[in-house]
Design a protein around this nucleic acid. Sequence first.
DNA 1: ACCAGTACCGACTAATTAGTCAGGTACTCA
DNA 2: TGAGTACCTGACTAATTAGTCGGTACTGGT
Lengths: 138, 138
Amino acid sequence: MAASARRGPYFCGIDAAMDVVAGKWKSLILWELHHYGTRRFAELRRGLPGVSEKMLIQHLREMEEDGLVHREVYREVPPKVEYSLTEHGVSLNAALSPLGQWGAERIRRIGAEKVPVTSAEAVQPEPTPARSANVYVR
Amino acid sequence: MAASARRGPYFCGIDAAMDVVAGKWKSLILWELHHYGTRRFAELRRGLPGVSEKMLIQHLREMEEDGLVHREVYREVPPKVEYSLTEHGVSLNAALSPLGQWGAERIRRIGAEKVPVTSAEAVQPEPTPARSANVYVR
DNA sequence: ACCAGTACCGACTAATTAGTCAGGTACTCA
DNA sequence: TGAGTACCTGACTAATTAGTCGGTACTGGT
């Protein structure tokens, strides 16, 4: 899998952090575990509408390997496994929170404007002078 | 491309922010533009060792569409295009900085210990109760 | 004349990531 | 005996993302 594949030389801290959070559901898992403290597999699954079991496990395994989540297995008869954040997971979540706020702002913005930068083109509606004949007009 | 494809309903702010930063080089582009203020295409290319022209352009286009970078074309004879961050790009970069610090910490950690998760066990040296004795041993 | 450099485009391929689905364990309850 | 529960595994496929390479239009230097 990718998470095990990388961990390569990083350009910078963001690079290294992204390597660990990249994955369709990882940030959501992080948020869910942060919000509820500990969650069982099926609870996570229900909390993340649309996630497949395969991806959920895969991500949980990778995050466990990366030291973000802790996996506690209870030897019970209907199997019980509880997932929770490690201290590194908690601190990562904290580090993600400004990003979350930025994203929330963005949702508000594009929710209001419906499209992000196109307003700039609406201001200056050039009729596309010399398509492909000229230097880099789009 | 993917960036145009998504912008869908987001679960939360982090989700929305990740949608915009996801991409092998985007965070590096952000950092580069933040650091230098404005950069030309070829400068960015040289600053990001290993990036292909295709990906660089693709990412720049997506980030422009997302309102993060500004593209200024000078109608000169050796073509000249300058990229810079918009205010949204700048604020995104600021929101990413705690993540960058977390990542730097992580690099330090795994650089020292070589393996990530072991530190949690080192801090709390539980004898790993039901681990590896259960149904879901790996 | 020819090569390097600027800022790209676009077709094609490779690699990575995600999804579907069938199954498996280990035990309980009816 | 057969169904049900919780937590998975692994094979196969689809979708997405990234990389390679050739081309454009133009100029300045050798």
